[in-house]
Write a protein that binds this DNA or RNA. Structure first.
Lengths: 235, 235
DNA sequence: CGTGTGATTGACGCCTGTCAACGTCTGTGG
DNA sequence: CCACAGACGTTGACAGGCGTCAATCACACG
């Protein structure tokens, strides 16, 4: 248990207009503030592991987390990313199941752990908060369904283009159109659902076609229109 | 608007111990009973369509519905099935988005339509009901994530075996191990996420290997253990 | 009996996964 | 400062799974 003083109080991290916690009353905020336990994690740390019983969820103060499932012979399938302002691990609390995925740190992170009972009691007593969580869940469900359709019907090439565009939406570009997230080729492959070599080959192809530029793990999106065309943007 | 008298009142159709509605008070039950509009649908009818704005959800009194997304050149990807006791269309109500999928009748169905405001107000005021809906959503989310991993990592052969087993869990077998659901080869392909011809070939192969038996659309599961082995059951 | 939908089978070829070899970079230890 | 190990990235060769196209069959329906 690290020093909690390293982490700002909720009044700083939860006030983002995007956060689910905007629906809480001051008393409810205070409750979470009292119950939470904060911690920092280095890249590579596992926050929770598939199949384990979790007894709380995490608010992300800073950093980036990947959420993935482990499939055949240990290959990861990345399901989602979470970054500052997001929450992870709430699904299994609410469904009362074991964690259906693992969470691992991609960029050094500071997280606040909140006990599951707190979440459940808030859901039961605060209708607006409950609706907000529900909305988040339903949104994720919609995205998951879209992804199923994509992965079932699109080629690897189309999916890679789409993944690059999704990453842009999640992590933004800098002023030079450089994707503000650093992933290994293997991680990219584990999002797209393909082999590492295929990702490498297709990235080279995209680069050759002047759609993107590559600098190690830094990817520059040069021609977003063309990428959208390739990804067959029906979404 | 068909004659509502054809459809039994909630006291008959909602009492199934499985139903979400068990968490409602008698007054809340009465509210739904008053607001609902029931209807029957023939095979092939579309209940709601992807991209449309829905203003309520449906309880399934009887029949079978497929939930699917439409992908490239109109190909369906079947996301889920719903049968008696289930509810459909609630996701877009709760998330406030447009419908992300379509719902079509596979076996003649009778459904009760309940306005969205009713659902939202119940979610906001009844903590236990809210938790139950949340649990259903989270469960579906977990299943969707599993399916993403499968479809990304498994071969068509493995997925087909798995789909047959899933169908068994949803629709049961009769005393002769015949799957109690009738799907076209194309629909099977649209679950597995492959071409119709591939499904046909693999089914023949399974039949040749004495894993299943085929009689038109009736599929008999002869060797469930072997199917599980093929499906690489990690779930 | 013609028409249409669904099921089947065969031929063909490309996409993509796998295996293997090699290059690159970084950090560690001598 | 250099050597080496290890992780990651890249490229080539190769085969086979699976999608596509096309022809044929089976069956129901008006």
């Amino acid at each position: 248990m690290k020093n909690r003083d390293q982490i700002p109080g909720c009044e700083n991290c939860m006030h983002c207009a995007e956060s689910i916690f905007k629906h809480l009353s001051p008393e409810e905020h205070a409750l979470i503030e009292k119950e939470k336990v904060c911690n920092t994690y280095k890249r590579g740390s596992v926050i929770y592991h598939e199949g384990s019983r979790t007894n709380g969820f995490y608010c992300i103060n800073s950093g980036v987390i990947k959420i993935f499932k482990t499939g055949i012979d240990g290959r990861e399938q990345i399901i989602a990313f979470a970054k500052d302002g997001g929450i992870i691990g709430y699904r299994s609390i609410l469904s009362g199941e074991l964690a259906c995925s693992s969470a691992k740190v991609i960029e050094d992170a500071s997280l606040c752990f909140v006990p599951g009972e707190t979440l459940i009691s808030l859901v039961k007593t605060n209708g607006n908060f409950s609706m907000a969580i529900m909305q988040q869940t339903c949104k994720e469900l919609g995205e998951a369904n879209s992804f199923i359709t994509d992965i079932a019907q699109k080629t690897v090439r189309e999916r890679l283009a789409e993944v690059l565009l999704n990453l842009k939406d999640i992590f933004d570009l800098d002023q030079n159109n450089v994707l503000q997230i650093s992933l290994t080729r293997e991680e990219l492959a584990n999002i797209v659902g393909t082999a590492t070599e295929s990702v490498i080959r297709l990235l080279s192809e995209f680069k050759h076609d002047k759609l993107i530029d590559l600098n190690g793990r830094k990817i520059t999106l040069l021609d977003i229109k063309a990428l959208e065309k390739i990804s067959n943007a029906f979404n």
